[in-house]
Amino acid sequence: MSTPETVSFGYADVTPAEKTAKVGAVFSSVARRYDIMNDLMSAGAHRLWKDDFVGRVRPRAGEAILDLAGGTGDIAFRLATSGASVTVADINADMLAVGEERAAKRGIAGLTWRAANAEAMPFDDAFFDAAAIAFGIRNVTDIPAALRDIHRVLKYGGRFFCLEFSTCEWPGFAKLYDAYSHHVVPRIGQAVAGDAESYRYLIESIRRFPDMQAFAGMIRAAGFSRVAVTPILGGAVAIHSGWKL
């Protein structure tokens, strides 16, 4: 399939190459403060969302599981407690470095860390029992290509789970959330990470991401079956899932 001429970077439309470079710069800038910022921006709720997410993945001992855009290891650490063999893949070397340091400090061994572009991963066909991506898919340059490659690396009968910000369908809360996101989050980013612009992009990228049903359609188009979506906070966050059947 052809590569789109332009893709979204926040509210701007840029070439695919520009987006890849710009997103890389954003995450290199925020890598060291990424988890602290997640706590501040969500009042710690992201930890509960991730616990729920991993519970739905249902990792089991002996399985091979891909944690894509795994960055600082938050999802991988949770998956690894099951005894599964977890591969953490991320395109950003700075995020991977933070994750490996955190794993070493916590004494978490046995994780595999790989630099990988989600659109063309260096893994064999039908290799993983499950694939998970949390708060990463919206930053991928070519999302349909990434979904197709996730489908490729899963075994038949394998499952895919995605945790991502989406579009809140609670009108009153949506207005409050929108105001908080656009006006407060960049200020927190400046105060804590010294980088308001990167967090402004992250909020804008949420606004440009497809709504729950549109993204579910993209997952189906990539070849997945039994696609489902579970909204959180009226859809401000959503867990999508699909199976390779």
Results as ranks from 00 to 15, higher is better:
residue 4 P to E: 05
residue 5 E to L: 11
residue 7 V to G: 09
residue 9 F to G: 02
residue 9 F to I: 06
residue 12 A to M: 08
residue 12 A to P: 01
residue 12 A to H: 08
residue 13 D to Q: 15
residue 17 A to V: 13
residue 17 A to G: 14
residue 20 T to V: 10
residue 20 T to K: 15
residue 20 T to H: 12
residue 21 A to V: 13
residue 24 G to S: 01
residue 25 A to M: 11
residue 26 V to Q: 05
residue 26 V to I: 15
residue 28 S to K: 13
residue 31 A to D: 00
residue 34 Y to I: 00
residue 35 D to F: 09
residue 43 A to P: 00
residue 46 H to P: 08
residue 47 R to E: 02
residue 48 L to I: 12
residue 50 K to A: 04
residue 53 F to P: 00
residue 55 G to C: 01
residue 59 P to K: 03
residue 59 P to T: 01
residue 59 P to L: 10
residue 63 E to I: 08
residue 64 A to Q: 13
residue 68 L to T: 06
residue 68 L to W: 08
residue 72 T to G: 06
residue 75 I to D: 07
residue 76 A to V: 03
residue 76 A to M: 00
residue 84 A to S: 07
residue 85 S to Q: 14
residue 86 V to T: 09
residue 88 V to D: 04
residue 88 V to P: 03
residue 91 I to R: 11
residue 92 N to E: 07
residue 93 A to Q: 01
residue 93 A to I: 06
residue 95 M to C: 01
residue 97 A to Q: 13
residue 101 E to I: 03
residue 103 A to W: 03
residue 105 K to T: 05
residue 106 R to T: 00
residue 106 R to A: 14
residue 110 G to I: 02
residue 111 L to H: 14
residue 112 T to R: 15
residue 115 A to L: 15
residue 116 A to W: 12
residue 119 E to W: 01
residue 120 A to W: 02
residue 120 A to C: 08
residue 120 A to K: 08
residue 121 M to F: 07
residue 122 P to Y: 09
residue 125 D to R: 11
residue 128 F to L: 03
residue 128 F to R: 04
residue 128 F to N: 04
residue 129 D to C: 10
residue 135 F to S: 08
residue 137 I to M: 13
residue 137 I to E: 02
residue 138 R to W: 05
residue 139 N to W: 11
residue 142 D to I: 05
residue 143 I to F: 11
residue 144 P to L: 04
residue 144 P to W: 04
residue 146 A to P: 13
residue 152 R to C: 11
residue 155 K to L: 11
residue 157 G to Y: 05
residue 157 G to M: 04
residue 166 S to D: 11
residue 166 S to A: 15
residue 166 S to P: 09
residue 167 T to L: 07
residue 168 C to F: 09
residue 170 W to T: 15
residue 172 G to V: 15
residue 172 G to A: 15
residue 174 A to G: 04
residue 174 A to L: 02
residue 176 L to Q: 08
residue 177 Y to T: 02
residue 180 Y to H: 03
residue 182 H to P: 00
residue 183 H to E: 14
residue 185 V to S: 03
residue 186 P to D: 05
residue 190 Q to R: 14
residue 191 A to K: 12
residue 193 A to K: 07
residue 195 D to F: 10
residue 199 Y to T: 04
residue 201 Y to R: 13
residue 203 I to E: 11
residue 203 I to Y: 06
residue 204 E to C: 06
residue 210 P to H: 13
residue 210 P to K: 10
residue 210 P to M: 12
residue 212 M to V: 01
residue 217 G to F: 08
residue 219 I to A: 12
residue 220 R to N: 09
residue 224 F to T: 03
residue 226 R to T: 11
residue 228 A to V: 06
residue 230 T to A: 12
residue 233 L to I: 14
residue 236 A to M: 06
